[in-house]
Design a protein around this nucleic acid. Structure first.
Length: 403
DNA sequence: CACCGTTCAGTTGAACTAAGCAACGGAATTCGG
DNA sequence: GAATTCCGTTGCTTAGTTCAACTGAACGGTGGA
């Protein structure tokens, strides 16, 4: 047994990897060259440039669908600026904050706590302090450091949906109290309609400048993929048509470059695991399945207990029902049953209703409010994943819940 | 048949509560001199 | 007598609860053609 494991590792070490530098196809990689976004880079740079002269740049609001390079371009431009400011010892700082729910910056308190943390002020309690205290602390730090601060709020739409738009004019208004420092905001949103239905005051303060990132088309995606593939892989490990297929797949889904890169990376990983020397077209289909599965697995694994319980009830109810969709009432009944089974205190229907809405937001299920005439009003809930992965997910949940 | 009030089964918003935490300030304890 | 520890109080955040208003299409009854 041990021998075979040793053999495996030795064999693995001796084998030529397909990868040269895996990082280049992983998320979070900032390439030195960003194709097809020159226009956006230039205009963002133009907007932010005054910061280098000690002036407060306009607030910017950036929107575009996922994987259109919003975060990448913003990071690229601001990192460059930060470097220049470092070289010329200017007082420019850039904080990047992801406001995705569950990302510890999803309330006003936590947002400011996170900002303080960025300043290196780490030991703030999770709860117990008044929010004002934290805000004051943050102002203090700002005044102390005397900086032009650019705050990037990624996925602001989620933050605003959770705590309201007030935060959007609260932040810029801090400038009025600051003598030595200034803040400007970059808001990034996936939701194109986000600006339409928020308070006009917040809107005007956030979107002094607006930028739209259009989706990539298939050809542009191919360029992006080739560029990254050159860094990431050995020469000649990509079979003909692989890049094209990745690009085509991702282009179908609103030109999502991240998706395209994920596809390529996972396809390569699968190829490597199967001892292939080349990435084949067939690997891509497998990769697509795997990505969808993994994404759902991950997000389900990290759900809080009550959410898991609710989700489990939904799974069970859906797989029993004929058209694979159910209404809130049935789910709540099931949920109550399972609660007593695992000896958990059941939540009220009010809360479960909210949980269902949250699960919908995260794309794990589809829930649509509908009126059934005299049948009342309810959510029609169905699963957002291919049915073949459901049994595995049920197993996963059972394990997590000790059912 | 068209129109209209009723009804159902939740949805949704707002106010409230419990749990867990931090800070504050005064009381109790410790301790070295 | 000063320093430290302890403890109760107050006030905060956050997740969840309670209360109640609101929703919107189908149902079923009414009146008009």
């Amino acid at each position: 047994m041990e021998d075979s494991l040793t053999n495996f590792f030795e064999e693995y070490m001796g084998k030529e990897s397909i990868f040269l530098d895996r990082k280049a196809v992983q998320s979070g990689f900032t390439p030195t060259n960003i194709p097809h976004r020159i226009e956006q880079i230039n205009s963002l740079a133009g907007i932010l440039a005054p910061a280098l002269k000690g002036e407060r740049p306009s607030n910017v609001f950036i929107y575009g669908k996922t994987g259109t390079g919003k975060t990448l371009v913003t990071k690229y431009v601001t990192e460059n600026m930060a470097n220049i400011s470092l070289k010329n010892s200017l007082n420019l700082k850039v904080f990047y904050i992801n406001c995705k729910i569950g990302n510890k910056a999803d309330t006003e308190y936590r947002l400011f706590a996170q900002l303080c943390k960025e300043f290196g002020f780490a030991d703030l309690p999770d709860t117990g302090l008044p929010t004002d205290v934290i805000v004051d602390k943050f102002k203090h730090l700002l005044e102390e450091k005397k900086v032009i601060l650019i705050i990037i709020l990624d996925e602001v739409d989620e933050l605003v949906r959770k705590i309201g738009a007030s935060i959007l004019y609260k932040l810029p208004r801090l400038n009025a109290d600051l003598k030595e420092s200034e803040i400007s905001l970059i808001g990034i949103s996936n939701d194109l309609t986000f600006l339409d239905n928020i308070d006009p005051r917040a809107r005007s303060s956030l979107s002094e400048e607006e930028m739209v990132f259009p989706p990539y088309n298939a050809l542009q995606l191919q360029n992006i993929l080739r560029e990254r593939a050159n860094i990431a892989f050995r020469k000649n490990v990509i079979d003909n048509g692989v890049i094209e297929k990745c690009a085509a797949h991702a282009a179908k889904e609103h030109g999502d470059a991240r998706r395209a890169l994920d596809l390529l990376r996972v396809a390569a990983e699968l190829a490597e695991r199967q001892n292939q020397t080349k990435i084949m077209i067939t690997n891509i289909d497998d990769a697509e399945d795997k990505i969808d599965r993994d994404k759902i697995f991950d997000s389900i694994k990290t759900q809080p207990k009550q959410h898991k319980l609710t989700l489990f009830s939904i799974f069970e109810a859906c797989s029993e029902s004929s058209d694979r969709s159910v209404f809130t009432g049935e789910i709540y009944n099931k949920y109550i049953q399972y609660c007593s089974k695992v000896a958990a205190a059941p939540l009220t229907q009010r809360r479960v209703s909210d949980i269902i809405a949250e699960l919908d937001m995260q794309g794990i299920i589809n829930a649509k409010v509908m009126s059934r005439g005299r049948g009342g009003r309810t959510r029609k809930i169905s699963l957002a994943m291919p049915s073949q992965s459901v049994p595995k997910l049920i197993e996963l949940l059972k394990e997590g819940l000790n059912l």
